[in-house]
Design a protein around this nucleic acid. Structure first.
Lengths: 125, 125
DNA sequence: CTTTGTGTACTAGTTTTCTAATACACTATA
DNA sequence: TATAGTGTATTAGAAAACTAGTACACAAAG
């Protein structure tokens, strides 16, 4: 896994696990790979993984069972909000950045529309 | 100035100066506040400011005149691309994040539209 | 009870970011 | 020439993030 060196690795791992849950690579109630295995897979230290998991557990996204493993929550409320929260966080980040450049909401939507169209063309060519 | 503790301060200062130029608080050819003054204003160390400026200078966004100050470039090409590049960087970041959550481009536009509408309502109330 | 696989805790150490202090170089002004 | 204001460079150190190794706790299976 490649990391952005401007953002703490533990934080990027959290985001990664959120995404794995959201896109159903990790299903509710299923077991997350063992911390040592995750550390190998992601090529980081066990403690860095552990820090990510600790926060996910405290948020209720994962549930720890000592000696058994960490499991994706089956709590419907948490699961339902997960995707919504992550998407909204991204939108909010972009909104704030572009608003500080004095773009209006309409200009943002237009800019995004043009951007995705440009990407479509590029990927066709 | 408040900083996001997950991103290097020197990098956030760079972004801040980009924005100041884009929204014309710093005009082409004008003098950027002295490094020591900037350090005071932003409540960070001179060297942290200096690192930001060094990169901006190497990018051609600022031009250094030893003993006189740092000045916003008057190079039209650099100035014209500045806003475009920053906006596109934000769009790209959001696009990649949401694409990894399996949102389609159309869903992104819809999500953004809903988000800005929600913000309008909130700000009205 | 032993072994294996798991999460957790602790201590130490490296790396990066940021801070701090200082010295030096150039410009303008008098 | 002296002084003040500016950018630049260097060195050292502090703080935070990350790594590394080890030990311990719990569960399951034999």
């Amino acid at each position: 896994m490649k990391f952005d060196d401007k953002i703490p690795i533990y934080y990027q791992i959290k985001q990664y696990i959120y995404k794995e849950i959201i896109i159903n690579h990790l299903t509710p109630g299923s077991k997350v790979p063992a911390v040592r295995q995750l550390a190998l897979d992601l090529a980081v230290n066990v403690n860095t993984v552990q820090r990510s998991l600790r926060e996910l557990i405290s948020e209720g996204v994962l549930e720890s069972q000592r000696g058994k493993g960490n499991f994706v929550t089956t709590n419907p409320e948490i699961l339902n909000n997960l995707r919504k929260n992550i998407v909204e966080e991204q939108l909010s980040l972009m909104y704030d950045h572009l608003a500080s450049l004095q773009l209006t909401p309409d200009e943002m939507i237009q800019a995004l529309t043009e951007y995705v169209n440009k990407r479509k063309e590029t990927h066709h060519g």
